[in-house]
Design a protein around this nucleic acid. Structure first.
Lengths: 225, 225
DNA sequence: GCAAATTTTAAATACTATTTACTATTTTAA
DNA sequence: TTAAAATAGTAAATAGTATTTAAAATTTGC
């Protein structure tokens, strides 16, 4: 999953970034309103952490611009100063998914992210069952019955993203965007996505039949469940 | 569906072209006003992406010329610089179907294209029912009841174009234009249209009776629904 | 700083879609 | 009724895309 931090306090942004990178997230960072907007127009994010007080404008402006775009599912978490109740209310009214009062613990942030994922995909728990395979999104573990399947970070991220978007064709571009980050910086005439998909499939296939993990020719992949 | 990109930034045009080609679109490209106009006179497009700032003139001129032609249903999406509100309004007044502010994400473009298709054909959703067969235009999937039907790109495009123009006879030339692109570059004494229609019919017919998929002798095909 | 694990690149192979070329069948109209 | 035209069907050649493998580069964990 990819995440954009819109925050001018660089130390804070770096701290969050480092923590979430360890959790397998792909982090992008904008310090100013304009850069944030540029990034949002071009890339799609699973999560956006939005600080309201930016040097060149108001976080709400960014939120408004985002909401004008079509077909976007970026989840927005607003970062406010503690006690600033009005901002929180306004944020939620403008379509943010959650807010977090500064200072907050990184674990709290992570908990919110998982909560939003559950809500967005209508999950009861942090576990998802896909044709007998169990994905534990919180602990980033995959198993089939009693057998643990050791996936690398990229393999897990691919599976995770496809599973959360099951029954939809996910293009290679979109998969790249969410698992590797900013498309503009990626060498697109390589086949690294396919190689990882191959390795992932091989690991899964040792446990069961995986015809539900389809390739959609010339577009991308789809997991049927 | 075919689409003409009128845009002088070659990198942008190529990026859009590559993305939409993967989605099954047939792409044509003009960098200058004059070439764009020539192409419009010769071919009919499902969609035209029109950048306003062209090296040899104004995009509005192209739009005006297009609107003077009769019996045309090309949908026009104007590309403007973000913030240029006057141009958007003028564009819509001059008969454009939508506008898109640069820079934009490719998914946003695709969303607009689908929205226009729905509007143009008065569809409530992205699904069309044709005598029991279900076409999901967004995911490019066809099914009959619970059964998925795997169509190749060309097969899907043929069905899609005929279905969107149901109850009208579509000539081989017109079908060729919209599914294969620029007629001038196509070998017209070949029978590839018929071969694909044959293959498509065969796949559909395994699920149900398809007498509604008619051949109109010496002209083309018609889907009755 | 080294060894192991992971990611990326690159090239070969396998597979699927598209087009061509040809034959068989159907339709039309003299 | 029959010959010409149009369409339907088949199979092989070509083009395009996906999969697999292996090795190089990079990152991670001790």
């Amino acid at each position: 999953m990819n995440l954009l931090i819109i925050e001018d306090e660089i130390d804070l942004a770096l701290e969050i970034g480092e923590f979430l990178t360890k959790q397998g997230f792909i982090i992008d960072h904008a310090r100013k309103r304009v850069t944030a907007e540029e990034k949002i127009f071009v890339n799609e994010y699973d999560f956006i952490l939005l600080d309201l007080g930016l040097p060149d404008g108001d976080g709400f402006q960014v939120l408004k611009k985002l909401k004008q775009l079509n077909n976007r599912e970026d989840a927005v978490i607003i970062l406010t100063a503690r006690g600033d109740v009005d901002d929180r209310i306004k944020g939620l009214e403008e379509g943010a998914d959650d807010y977090l009062a500064k200072p907050f613990s990184l674990n709290e942030l992570l908990a919110r992210i998982h909560a939003i994922t559950r809500r967005k995909h209508k999950l009861e728990t942090n576990d998802i069952d896909v044709n007998g395979f169990k994905l534990d999104i919180k602990n980033r573990m995959v198993s089939y019955g009693e057998n643990r399947i050791n996936l690398t970070k990229k393999e897990f991220e691919i599976l995770n993203y496809l599973v959360l978007n099951k029954n939809r064709v996910i293009s290679r571009v979109s998969l790249t965007e969410h698992v590797w980050g900013d498309i503009l910086e990626i060498n697109s005439d390589s086949n690294f996505v396919d190689v990882h998909v191959k390795n992932l499939r091989k690991k899964l296939a040792t446990h069961a039949e995986i015809s539900w993990f389809e390739t959609v020719r010339s577009i991308g992949f789809r997991i049927n469940a």
